[in-house]
Every structure is written in structure tokens, then in C-alpha cells.
Design a protein around this nucleic acid. Structure first.
Lengths: 251, 251
DNA sequence: TTGGTCTAAAGGTCTGACCCAATCTAGCAT
DNA sequence: ATGCTAGATTGGGTCAGACCTTTAGACCAA
């Protein structure tokens, strides 16, 4: 090697040869993210993309599949089907967080830690930015929490209320994070049976007190009350299954 | 519609017919997430999966592509290549958050809001859970911040320090979130030119004071100082480009 | 009205071939 | 022996073309 150094002065950097499907996926992704195509705009049919790009249908389809998994397009079969542009929403963040949590077998503590970090801030933003519609939704969902007759109903309504708080803050990033955390907590708290009548009535009261702070646009109180609520809930859940890892969710 | 209600009492839910590639992807995903296969385990070659599943290679490949995008496998070409199991890491969360931020053209304020919500808690966890290695890394990266000679070096080192704080907290969810936020802030703060000598030296001092709190295992101080630092940085950045949306990152 | 049938458009799947990349190995040259 | 090069092998990447399935719409028949 060293003896060849003088052979030519030309030096080239290490190069990467991207896959064809990635090239197409990247191109389309940039266009979608740039906002060039608005929500719902149909991409050309696969066979049309084939003639335009001069790639094979296999390649085109792999590119579309990539974008679909990333939540950037939605694909429907049948006549007038095809690929339609879709701006990514909180769900894609939620599902990737979900994979992280389940795949790493993260301890329940990590999820609750994160929630304790995030949710009080959601309450704060909700107090600052909520609309009348948001307030109504908080009341409605908390009524459902109070009216729940079995464990599953309770958990579902509980998640709905917490997500309503996040959405009242009108910050889509935090909302996406909360959706993911809620899903994880939902699948773990289920089957645990630590949710008794007492826990439920305490939760309902805590929710009401947070809602009041939000309605009165008192961010500090909202933070304080939400922090206390989440912390005590986490402590109870952790005590109920100490040192347990998250079990695989039933699909 | 209403007149048809009486025609029959029978009600059926909307049904979904899953795609073959999704079926395979789901099957493999469940197995990977369950921990049945450890990190690095090779999946059978595509052609082998074809004979085992009696699906076509196209279908098998689409399934593998899905898992690859979700960060559950890594695919290498060439002899002794193939698909290898990979537990999802923070990067996949980061990239989906990145898509959300870029795709929705979220206001810079949203990103900073989220960061102000998350990062103080990272500091708190760092104060509680850090190891000697973590501390050293905080010092090293902050020295790089101080030594940076141009804007790009500064931003890079700055991101590295903040991620080091997150990792010192040993919570992978928060780490993933911080990675995503940092990436977004990096691409937006760049080109803005509000980072002058004064901002930089203030940042270095703030980092040192947070690091001290972490080293002394004083969670409250860590939270307070980090909150102040992040808040002032956000205020400065927001003032520098008020009411501006995130520009498309250069790839 | 209600249901059947047909057609066209579009995605979903299959087959089989060939191309490229990475690795291993046998054999040749020194 | 040593070292290197030329296949051989195993694997993913791409292509071309056919056929199946799903859906929308139109038209027809009871």
C-alpha cells in the first residue's frame, strides 16, 4: 500500500452506495416533509412511478413501504386507491416509543419516571393554552373515569383523560410522548389488580383538582397537583409490582 | 340509514384483512420483542424464509423492510450477510420525533417547550443515578464546548453535553427524547447566528454549575439550574427568530 | 329499492431470473 | 512457509412480467 502512494495523487473518500429503494424513499420523504404536497395528495400509482423513475416495481414498492411505516403516506388498495400523503402524527412517535419500551424490557420505573417528568409540564401548558372545548373534554372524560364499572373501562377512560390534558396544552410533541407512555402504562397496569375502589376515587378527585387549576389558568397549581397525582399513582403501581419487568402486551 | 336499522338486528364489526407481509412482520416482531432472540441473532436467509413460510420472496422482503425501518433488525448484504436482530434504541424514537417536527413544521416554541419540560428532569435523574464515567463525560464534553472555535463545533459539542446529561440519568426513554429534540434544535439554531461569544461563555458556565450539582448528587439544584439554563437559551433563541417556523434541514 | 354483474383501476402476491457484495478458499508464485 | 490473487459461494438487491384481490362505479334485473 505505502509504495503505491506515489502512483497517483488522486485521493477519493470512502463512498457509500445507497439502495435504490432508499434513494426513492428519501426523495419522496423530502418532498413530503417540505410541505410541497398537502395532506391527502395522491402519489402517482406504482406503475406510473415505475415509468417515471425507471425503477422496477419491486423497488418502488419497497420505497412506498418505507414511507408507510414512517407514517408519511397511507396506502389503500382497490380502485381509486394508492398512496396518499399524510403528515406524521403523534401515533408514529408513540409506536416507536412503544417498541423501545417493549424491546428493551424497560423497567416500569423508567416509564413512570418519564411520565413524572413530562406530565406536569403538560398540565402547565394546558393551564396556559386551553380552549373551552378542551375544558369540556376534560370534564367529560373524567366523568367517564368516575362512571367506569370495570377495570378495563377505568383504565381506558383514565388514559383518555390524561391524553386530553396533553392535547389541551397544544404541543404535539408532548402529546405524542404522552400517548406512547399512556399506552405502555395501560398495558402494564392492566392485570395487576392494584386498582381498587379507593385508588379510583382518589384518581377522580385528583383529576378534578387538576382540571380546576387548568380552568383557572393557574399553571403553578396545575403543575403541583398533577405532579402529586402522577407521583402517588406511580408509587402505588410500583409498590404493586416491585422489581417486575413489563410483560409482553397481548396483541 | 335510520329506516334500515330494523332490517336486521345482527351487527358486525368492521373487519380488517391483514396483508401477508404484515402477518409475517408481526410474527417476527413479537418474537423479537419477547426477547426470544438475543441481539445479533441472524434471521434465516430470505430464500429460507420463503420455503418456511411458503410466501414469495417479495412478501418476505417487504416484511423484513418493515422491521428494518422499525429498527428491529439490521440488514447486511454479501456472504454471511442477512438480517440480524437488533433491540430498538433511542435513535428510532429520535427519528420519528424528527419526522413529526419537520413534517408538521412545528413552531420552534414547541420544541423548546418540550425541552424545558424534559431536560430539568434529566438533570434530576443524572444527579441521582450518575456514575463516575458519566461525570467524566460531562466534563470532557463541556470542555469541548468551551474550546469550540466556530459555530458548528459549538453546536455539536453543546448537543453532546446535553445528551451526556440525559444518559447520565440512565433512562433510555428520556435519552431518546432528548436526542430527537437536540437534533431538531441543532438544525434550527444553526444558520441563525444568534450564538455570539457572550452566549457561549454563559452556556459553558451554566453547564459547569449544572455539572457541579449533579456531581454533588443534589437533584433539586440540578433541576433548578438546568431549568434556568434551558429557559434562558430558549428565550434567546426565540427572540432571535421570532415567529419563524423550522426551516427544512439540509440533508 | 335491492341485489347481481361487469369492468376498470389499483394495490398485493408470485415466479424466476440476473446483478452486485462480501467472504472463503484453493492454488499459485515467491 | 508466506502471501496474494482468482474463483466459488452465499447472501441481499433489482428487474420483468404475470396473475390475484380489492374497490368504485355503472348498468341491469327482479
Amino acid at each position: 500500500m505505502a509504495s503505491n502512494d506515489a502512483r497517483s495523487v488522486i485521493r477519493l473518500p470512502a463512498m457509500e452506495v445507497p439502495k435504490a429503494s432508499d434513494v426513492l424513499a428519501n426523495e419522496l420523504r423530502e418532498r413530503i416533509l417540505s410541505g410541497e404536497y398537502s395532506e391527502g395528495t395522491p402519489l402517482p400509482p406504482e406503475r406510473e412511478l415505475v415509468v417515471q423513475t425507471r425503477m422496477s416495481r419491486t423497488t418502488v414498492r419497497e420505497a412506498l413501504r418505507i414511507l408507510e411505516v414512517q407514517g408519511l403516506i397511507r396506502i389503500r388498495a382497490g380502485r381509486s386507491g394508492g398512496a396518499f400523503v399524510q403528515q406524521p402524527g403523534g401515533e408514529s412517535v408513540a409506536s416507536s416509543l412503544d417498541l423501545l419500551i417493549r424491546g428493551r424490557h424497560l423497567r416500569l420505573a423508567s416509564v413512570h419516571e418519564t411520565r413524572e417528568a413530562v406530565e406536569p409540564s403538560c398540565a402547565r401548558l394546558a393551564a396556559l393554552h386551553h380552549t373551552p372545548t378542551d375544558l369540556r373534554r376534560l370534564d367529560v372524560t373524567n366523568d367517564e373515569v368516575a362512571a367506569a364499572e370495570n377495570l378495563d373501562d377505568f383504565l381506558r377512560a383514565n388514559v383518555a383523560w390524561h391524553i386530553a390534558v396533553a392535547e389541551a396544552g397544544h404541543n404535539e410533541i408532548l402529546t405524542g410522548i404522552m400517548m406512547a407512555l399512556s399506552r405502555a402504562i395501560y398495558t402494564t397496569t392492566n392485570n395487576e389488580g392494584f386498582v381498587n375502589e379507593q385508588v379510583r376515587s382518589i384518581a377522580v378527585r385528583a383529576h378534578r383538582s387538576v382540571t380546576r387549576a387548568v380552568a383557572e389558568r393557574d399553571p403553578d397549581a396545575a403543575v403541583r397537583r398533577m405532579a402529586r397525582h402522577v407521583h402517588s399513582y406511580a408509587a402505588a403501581a410500583l409498590e404493586a409490582d416491585s422489581r417486575t419487568e413489563i410483560s409482553v402486551a397481548d396483541h
